[in-house]
C-alpha cells in the first residue's frame, strides 16, 4: 500500500502511439462530459419549476440541431476509427528483421524459447532497441499474452499460432500478465519481461546453459522420431522433401494450394491427412500425443533451417539458411540428415 500509480510505464515504440490516441479520446470525452453535465446543471437550475401551474411552451425539435449533433460526433468518431486502425495495423505487422521467439502457454505458466536454445519460464529476456516477434500457442485453453508497459496484448490459442511483436525502448523489468481467464490460477499466470542493454543481453545469451539451438534440438527429434526414414532431403523418399519447403506454396492432392508456414507444418505433423501434398500417398501417421507443442516448435524451426531452396535441386550441403527468412541468425545448423545411414 502507499503507491498510487496513475499512468503505466511507456517502454515500447507502440506505447507512445497508444497514449497519444488516449489523450485525443480523453479530450473528446472530457469536452462532451463537461458539456452535457454543464448543460444539465445549468438548465436544471435556470428552469427549475417555480410554480405548480407552470406550463412551458412545447418545443418539438429542430432539424438543424439534429443534423449538427449527428454529423459532428460522427466526424470525430471517424478520426478515432482511422487513428485506432492505423495503430492496429502497425501492431499486426512485425518488421522483417525482428528477433524471433516462441511462446507456449499452459495452465498456469508461460514457457519461452529462444532460437539459441535458452528456455525460460515466466521470464523473458530481450534486448533493448530490437524488434522482437513472438510466435505463440497454447497447450490447453485460451490465454492472452499481455505486457501493459508495451501496450501489447494477443490471445494465445490452442491449435493455432498467433503472433505479437514489440520493440522495447527502455531497459527495465515489466509485468507480463495472462489476460484471458484460463482457470483456477489465472491470476498466477504472470511473469516479467526483462529488457536488457544489447551487450548485457549477449552476455546473458551466451552465459546460459543452453543445449544447442532450437533447430538442432529439432534435428535430433527429426531423427529420433524417424521422420528421415521417409522425408529424404533429395525427394527420393516416400514423402516429399522438406528442404526448401518453408515459405513455399505447396500443391495439394485433390487441388488447392497452401503456403508452407508454421501453421501448415504444425498441422501436417499433428493431422497429416488434412493437407496431403500432390503426388504423394496419405501414409504419414499422426504425431498427436507423441510430441508436445514445444517439440512441434523445434521441428518447425528445424524445417525452417533447411532453407527455402527450390525443390528438386541437388542434395543440399552446408547451411541453407535462406534470404528473407527471419529465423535463426547465428543458428548452428548442421545441414540436413543424410538419407539413410
Amino acid at each position: 500500500m502507499g503507491q498510487l500509480p496513475l499512468f503505466p510505464e511507456q517502454a515500447s515504440t507502440i506505447a507512445p502511439d497508444v497514449d497519444h490516441l488516449l489523450y485525443f479520446l480523453l479530450a473528446v470525452a472530457v469536452f462532451f462530459t463537461v458539456g452535457i453535465f454543464g448543460a444539465i446543471f445549468y438548465f436544471a437550475v435556470r428552469y427549475r419549476r417555480r410554480s405548480e401551474q407552470e406550463l412551458p411552451n412545447p418545443v418539438h425539435g429542430g432539424l438543424t440541431l439534429e443534423i449538427l449533433w449527428s454529423v459532428i460526433p460522427f466526424g470525430l468518431t471517424m478520426v478515432m476509427f482511422t487513428w485506432g486502425a492505423s495503430i492496429y495495423f502497425t501492431e499486426a505487422r512485425p518488421p522483417s528483421d525482428a528477433l524471433s521467439l516462441y511462446v507456449v502457454g499452459k495452465q498456469w505458466m508461460w514457457k519461452l524459447e529462444h532460437m539459441e536454445g535458452q528456455r525460460e519460464i515466466n521470464e523473458l529476456h530481450v534486448p533493448l532497441g530490437r524488434a522482437v516477434k513472438l510466435t505463440m500457442t497454447s497447450e490447453d485453453v485460451i490465454h492472452s499474452f499481455f505486457i501493459p508497459a508495451f501496450r501489447m496484448k494477443q490471445d494465445v490459442l490452442p491449435g493455432k499460432y498467433s503472433t505479437l511483436w514489440f520493440k522495447p525502448t527502455k531497459a527495465g523489468k515489466y509485468h507480463l500478465f495472462c489476460a484471458e481467464y484460463c482457470g483456477a490460477r489465472h491470476s498466477g499466470m504472470i511473469g516479467w519481461i526483462h529488457v536488457m542493454e544489447p551487450q548485457e543481453y549477449q552476455n546473458w545469451l551466451t552465459g546460459g546453459a543452453a543445449e544447442g539451438s532450437l533447430a538442432s534440438a529439432g534435428e535430433k527429434l527429426f531423427e529420433g522420431l524417424a521422420c528421415n526414414n521417409c522425408h529424404h532431403p533429395d525427394g527420393s523418399g516416400r514423402c516429399p522433401t522438406l528442404v526448401g519447403l518453408f515459405g513455399k506454396t505447396v500443391q495439394l492432392a485433390g487441388g488447392g494450394m497452401v503456403k508452407a508456414d508454421e501453421a501448415y507444418i504444425r498441422e501436417s505433423i499433428l493431422r497429416p491427412q488434412a493437407k496431403v501434398v500432390a503426388g504423394y500417398q496419405p501414409i504419414m501417421p499422426t504425431f498427436q500425443g507423441l510430441v508436445t507443442e514445444e517439440d512441434v516448435l523445434r521441428l518447425v524451426e528445424y524445417i525452417k533451417s533447411l532453407g527455402t531452396k527450390p525443390e528438386g535441386s541437388a542434395t543440399p550441403s552446408g547451411v541453407p539458411v535462406s534470404q528473407g527468412n527471419p529465423a535463426p541468425k547465428g543458428t548452428a545448423t548442421k545441414g540436413v540428415p543424410a538419407p539413410k545411414r
Partner: peptide, 21 residues
C-alpha cells in the same frame, strides 16, 4: 454519457488491444 464515450475508446482498434480484458 461516460459509459458511452468510453465505448468510443474501446471501439478504437489499437487502443482496445491494450485495454481489452
Amino acid at each position: 454519457t461516460i459509459g458511452g464515450l468510453t465505448g468510443l475508446f474501446v471501439a478504437a482498434l489499437g487502443f482496445d488491444v491494450h485495454v481489452t480484458d
